[in-house]
Amino acid sequence: MDAMPRQTSVLAVLSLVFGILGWTLLPGLGAIVAVVTGHIARAEIRRTPQTLEGDGLAIAGLVLGWLGIVLGIVLVALMLLVFGGLAWLSAWA
């Protein structure tokens, strides 16, 4: 008896696509969508492993998404430190 081929999770593919978009055309928004769809895809794949695959795609989207979010937070913190420090220095001048 032939086993039915597993289908790739659409949400896993979306997670990877938005993870890439988060680094190119849609910084911020793409990263958030990648993380959300990646987590949903992994849960969906775990619930029905006999019919769905694409866990690696979902993980790649999650990694790209989380890295984009962390990098964005770090950049905002650095900007606040630099410009806040400049404002503090100019107040003393």
Rank of each mutant, 00 (worst) to 15 (best):
M1W: 07
D2K: 13
D2H: 12
A3F: 11
M4E: 15
M4N: 12
P5M: 08
P5Y: 07
R6F: 07
Q7C: 09
T8D: 09
S9A: 07
V10Y: 14
V10C: 06
L14T: 12
L14K: 11
L16G: 06
L16N: 11
L16Q: 10
L16M: 11
L16E: 11
L16V: 02
V17H: 07
V17D: 08
V17F: 06
V17K: 07
V17A: 15
F18K: 01
F18L: 08
G19H: 02
G19L: 03
G19Q: 04
I20P: 00
I20K: 06
L21T: 02
L21I: 04
L21Q: 05
G22F: 00
W23R: 13
W23H: 10
W23P: 05
T24E: 09
L26E: 02
L26K: 03
L26A: 09
L26W: 08
P27M: 08
P27F: 06
P27L: 05
G28F: 01
L29Y: 09
L29T: 13
G30I: 00
A31W: 04
I32H: 02
I32N: 02
I32V: 13
V33F: 06
V33W: 02
A34T: 03
V35C: 08
V36N: 01
V36H: 04
V36M: 10
T37W: 03
T37A: 13
G38D: 03
G38L: 04
G38N: 06
H39V: 15
H39N: 14
I40H: 04
A41E: 01
A41F: 01
A43D: 15
A43M: 09
A43G: 05
E44H: 13
I45T: 01
I45H: 00
I45S: 01
R46Y: 02
R46T: 12
R47S: 11
T48P: 00
P49D: 00
P49E: 07
P49W: 01
Q50E: 15
T51G: 00
T51Q: 15
L52T: 03
E53C: 10
E53V: 10
D55Y: 06
D55I: 09
G56W: 09
G56S: 12
G56Q: 10
L57A: 12
A58M: 02
I59E: 04
I59T: 15
I59P: 00
A60R: 04
G61V: 01
L62V: 08
V63A: 10
V63C: 05
L64Y: 06
W66A: 14
W66L: 15
W66S: 06
G68D: 03
G68P: 05
G68N: 04
G68F: 05
G68L: 03
G68W: 01
I69E: 02
V70K: 04
L71A: 15
L71G: 06
L71Q: 13
L71I: 09
G72Q: 03
I73K: 03
I73R: 05
V76I: 15
V76S: 12
A77K: 06
A77C: 05
A77M: 11
L78W: 14
L78R: 11
L78N: 10
M79H: 15
L80C: 08
L80G: 07
L80V: 08
V82S: 12
V82Y: 11
F83W: 14
G84T: 08
G85I: 06
A87Y: 12
A87I: 13
L89E: 05
L89V: 10
S90E: 15
S90Q: 14
S90W: 13
A91L: 15
A91R: 13
W92V: 13
A93P: 10
